[in-house]
């Protein structure tokens, strides 16, 4: 079970929820379940996101395993100059 914390940006699309628990083996599954449970999040997730797992920000690696009890943040997809 991972604890997903939603930033203010995502809260409005998730009915004001600030965090929720999702059981997923990896980032890919977690994003699928998140979109399933909160369809309004889907367009945001589809635009591209980075996912922080226990402090490490993953931009691309969708099959990164989620350790039990990990803390997950959905962040904008990283870009730079």
């Amino acid at each position: 079970m991972a604890l997903v914390k939603l930033s203010g940006t995502l809260r409005s699309a998730a009915g004001g929820l600030t965090e929720l628990e999702i059981d997923a083996p990896n980032i890919h599954q977690l994003l699928l379940k998140l979109a399933e449970q909160h369809p309004k999040l889907k367009p945001v997730l589809d635009r591209g996101v980075s996912v922080a797992v226990d402090g490490e920000i993953y931009r691309d690696d969708r099959f990164r395993p989620l350790p039990a009890g990990s803390e997950v943040f959905i962040l904008p997809r990283m870009a730079g100059g």
Partner: peptide, 21 residues
């Protein structure tokens, strides 16, 4: 404007809102 609930009815120049903290 994206990420605002309820979504605005009218078009504007504000593409989206974001919030962190």
């Amino acid at each position: 404007t994206a990420n605002v609930e309820p979504a605005p009815k009218k078009a504007s120049n504000i593409a989206s809102r974001c919030e962190f903290g």
